[in-house]
Design a protein around this nucleic acid. Structure first.
Length: 861
RNA sequence: GCCCCAGUGGCGAAAUGGUAGACGCGGUAGACUCAAAAUCUAUUGUCGAGAGACGUGCUGGUUCGAGUCCGGCCUGGGGCACCA
């Protein structure tokens, strides 16, 4: 009897899979139904962390399960290989980003292979490979031709640490998503992708994504932020400023409150504000002050409403005699709606704050239900609820929604505006002033303007000979790379030196995986065969960023005819994080300590090296800064890969955070050994066909086996891997209750049947152990090539059930009856039970409720 | 401020409206051992000797029956945030 040794078994079983190329996706004419399972591909930081282990183990369970269920599974892996860390390494350590990246890829590939993932490695790709980003340049130019790419000057988010521009989605709480630096506003000319063209589609599409978490759909919907309202023009009263002969256009979602108008306000960046500033020094000073304020969180929190009276007046659209003042206001945003609003202080808090500060009129026009129209007034809080419109001319008596429609209708009839839909979503700025990214394949000619790089010059390859001794974009200071001939006129021209946001790279890789060597960006036949991805697995942190960009690019490429699906991911699963306790020294320095650096001495937690006492802090996401990480490689060495995989899936539901504990992984490790012992003690050559009838113990084991198959299958199907694993643990306890020692031939046969099932059921979770066990049972082939076990419903069903009997909802005793017994029969048994008189305690039976195979409740009084 | 999610033993967690706490961790006792580790066995929500009672953040309600459904509140987490 040999002790299970993962260090010996695991590499051997991986070699066995490789020898038969077990995980290659089937050829195009494969008759099996296709299933595409994909985890978000990693950034090659150099090492895998526990988050990767969990992410890829979860995906691997699905891939292995689906394969066993007879699917032709595509389960590829690649590298999101462009990005800042490579350049930082170049600047800090003098290594080349390319070398650094490919070294990291080599390391991480080896680590991921060690995890025993059932990946089709023949499809591996890296986004920094010209073979990949060249194809990206191809479709980028196609989208340019389509009008989905444009260049404009605008105020952008500038990350002063990474020295680059960031998209709105990449600014979190006023800081760069990667660097954490406070983002500044800069005016730059940038490349944009017209994601707003698809705003409506992207919202509507969410409704079709039934296998996405509600939470993610909601976040995307909020991010796109569709609102319906009215866009209309105010005519100026008295003086009309130059360039505004058509009036001033505003956007509102509350046209029902137009008779409550108090003033009109424009953004400090509004062209009219600039016009006013041209002849009004105080206005110019006010605008400058607003810009300085910035958009950081703190500024907004304390942000006081500030305004500047332009001295201009406009006419109310429903009453030309009624004049409204035009203010410049710091709370009006230029890049939402039209950058101008009409204010109704009674029914909008911001307008109210502003009106109170500057002594402007507050006119309630929505009467809350039950309020008195004579006395209703607004104090310090605007009324935004439902009600009846009053003091509003032709809108009087209508409810809010009807009044909106009526007001829009009137404005449209007057030809002053139209009902409009406005989005919060902005176009996606994709220019990055960095070296390690996909070059934007454009050539700038002073005479001809920006020109697409000619097809025969693609890919536009990054030059290798660049320097990182100074900040800024190395492409900009490369001596020769930029200088090329204009493809249109042949004159001297310059390459675009901006590279693409790395989120562009990850917006289509799932499509490239369907044929990673295609001569076109996407092989339509392969893409249409495999897409959409049946199950995508990744972190919730990409709920808006990557997942929104990928949906957009998929739609754009579909419209370009490159593939046929509109939604890239039919099913999405967002897994929780791996967390760990944090530790700090109690000395003045309060240093964070790694779990590896602490130990218990005389019952006190101390730093191993110094003996300084340690306090246990919160349970947080594993991170380098808090030092609460555990290196996967160390765990693999100590407990084996299977135990690590098992533990990250066993202790929490996959979508929730899981807390890494030393005790937990030891439990998983014990399970691995106990499973092996059951296989190891089973004698060889047991006759499984022996007659088991009449042997109660054998029958009980067989029933447990078939119930196990059912419950593990159900658990995997519903992504509740933790409960599936719990059933496996439970079953092991059953097996141990029917040991080989002293077993009848029938029990031995039942054990053999149980082990045949068990080896296959654990295969998605602990694949190496499963394979070794399968071999131990004497099979020639591999578990990975063996179908999923099936259960006999008759055996899985209970034949006797214990029914709790309640009296008035309180459990009093229980009876044992045949499963499936009709309620009337059960009632007879219960009422005939001698317990009944004792338990009723003098009460009489009023009613008996029997839920078949579940419970009996006697209502007595 | 708005939107969403979650509160269950010492801990991670189970539980189609039907026996709350499966399974694991930790604890306790025991076996094996010269001893320890490992392993195995039993036990482990609280109170109670026991029968039993009480227990799923608080509070109302629906129901024969509520952790689960509905209303209000509290706490924690996440998202958005001057979006007109």
């Amino acid at each position: 009897m040999a002790r299970y040794n993962p260090k010996e078994v695991e590499p051997r079983q991986r070699a066995a899979w490789d020898a038969v190329d077990a995980f290659a996706a089937g050829p195009p004419d494969d008759p099996r139904p296709r299933y595409y399972v994909l985890e978000m591909f990693p950034y090659p930081s150099g090492r895998i962390h526990m988050g990767h282990v969990r992410n890829y183990a979860l995906g691997d369970v699905i891939a292995r399960y689906k394969r066993a269920r007879g699917f032709n599974v595509l389960h590829p892996m690649g590298w999101d290989a462009f990005g800042m860390p490579a350049e930082n390494a170049a600047m800090e350590r003098g290594v080349h980003p390319k070398g650094w990246t490919y070294d990291n890829i080599a390391n991480m590939r080896a680590e991921l292979k060690r995890l025993g993932l059932s990946i089709d490695w023949s499809r591996e790709l890296a986004t920094c490979d010209p073979a990949y980003y060249g194809q990206q340049q191809r479709w980028f130019l196609k989208l340019w031709k389509r009008g989905l790419v444009y260049r404009k000057e605008g105020v952008v988010n500038w990350d002063p640490v990474d020295n680059t521009v960031l998209a709105n989605e990449q600014v979190i709480d006023g800081r760069g998503w990667r660097s954490g630096a406070v983002v500044e506003k800069r005016k730059l000319t940038q490349w944009f992708l017209r994601i707003t063209d698809y705003a409506d589609d992207l919202i509507e599409g969410l409704k079709t994504l039934e296998r996405w978490p509600e939470k993610v759909r909601l976040m995307q919907e909020n991010w796109i932020g569709r609102s319906k309202g009215l866009r209309f023009r105010f005519a100026f009263a008295g003086y009309t400023p130059t360039g505004f002969a058509d009036g001033l256009e505003v956007y509102t979602t509350r046209p029902d409150t137009l008779f409550g108008a108090s003033f009109v306000a424009i953004a400090p960046d509004h062209p009219l504000a600039e016009r006013v500033a041209a002849y009004h020094r105080d206005a110019a000073a006010f605008i400058a002050e607003c810009r300085k304020g910035g958009t950081t969180e703190a500024d907004i929190e304390t942000g006081e409403k500030l305004g500047f009276d332009t001295g201009l007046w406009v006419q109310h659209p429903f009453d030309p005699q009624w004049r409204l003042k035009v203010w410049i206001a710091n709370f009006v945003l230029m890049d939402y709606g039209t950058g101008a609003i009409f204010a109704c202080p009674a029914h909008d808090q911001r307008d109210l704050d502003f009106a109170r500060k500057y002594g402007l009129p507050v006119r309630p026009v929505v009467l809350p239900p039950g309020a008195d129209p004579e006395t209703f007034a607004v104090g310090e809080e605007a009324y935004t609820g439902p009600g009846t419109i009053f003091k509003s001319g032709f809108l009087d008596g209508l409810d809010v929604e009807s009044a909106k429609a009526a007001a829009i209708e009137r404005i449209e009839a007057q030809d002053q505006g139209r009902g409009a839909t406005v989005y919060r979503l902005r176009d996606w700025g994709v220019s990055r002033q960095r070296y390690w990214g996909c070059p934007i394949p454009v050539i700038h000619c002073a005479a001809c303007g920006p020109q697409p790089a000619p097809d025969d010059q693609l890919p536009v390859v990054l030059p290798d000979d660049v320097t990182f001794d100074r900040p800024g974009n190395p492409l900009l200071r490369h001596p020769t790379w930029r200088h090329v001939a204009c493809p249109a006129c042949g004159g001297p021209a310059e390459r675009e030196t901006d590279t693409l946001d790395t989120f562009v790279d990850s917006s289509w890789y799932f499509a490239r995986f369907t044929d990673p060597k295609a001569v076109e960006p996407i092989d339509k036949t392969a893409a249409d065969a495999w897409l959409p991805v049946d199950q995508y697995v990744g972190g919730i942190e990409h709920a808006v960023l990557h997942l929104l960009y990928a949906r957009f690019i998929t739609r754009a490429l579909k419209d370009e005819g490159l593939m046929s699906v509109a939604e890239p991911f039919a099913g999405l699963f967002t897994q929780g994080m791996v967390t760990h306790e944090t530790y700090r020294t109690t000395d003045a320095a309060e240093r964070w300590l790694s779990p590896a650096d602490i130990e218990t001495r005389d019952g006190v937690l101390v730093e191993a090296q110094t003996g300084v006492p340690v306090t246990v802090g919160g349970i947080e996401k594993m991170s380098k800064s808090k030092k609460n990480t555990v290196a996967p490689e160390d765990i693999f060495d100590a407990y084996g890969v299977d135990a690590a995989r098992l533990f990250v899936m066993s202790d929490s539901p996959p979508d929730r955070d899981v807390q890494w504990t030393a005790g937990g992984v030891e439990g998983a490790w014990r399970f691995v050994h106990r499973v092996w012992n059951e296989f190891d003690t089973q004698p060889e050559g047991v006759d499984i066909a022996v007659d088991m009838a009449g042997d109660e113990r054998a029958k009980a084991l067989r029933q447990a086996t078939h119930r196990l198959i059912k419950s593990v299958t159900d658990s995997i199907e519903s992504f509740r891997f933790n409960t599936g694993i719990a059933r496996l643990y439970e079953f092991l306890n059953v097996l141990k209750g029917a040991p080989v020692a002293g077993a009848s031939p029938a029990v031995l046969a039942a054990r053999a049947e149980a082990l045949q099932a068990l080896a296959r059921l654990i295969a998605p979770f602990t694949p190496h152990l499963a394979e070794e066990a399968w071999t131990r049972l004497g099979h020639e082939g591999l578990v990975v090539q063996t179908p999923w076990p099936t259960y006999d419903p008759a055996l899985a069903a209970e034949d006797e059930v214990v029914l709790p009997v309640q009296v008035n909802g309180k459990r009093r005793w229980e009876i044992r009856v045949a499963a499936g017994l009709e309620p009337a029969e059960v009632e007879k048994i219960v009422l005939g039970d001698e317990e009944v008189t004792r338990r009723l305690d003098g009460l009489s039976v009023r009613k008996v409720i029997v839920v078949k195979d579940r419970i009996v409740n006697i209502v007595a009084g």
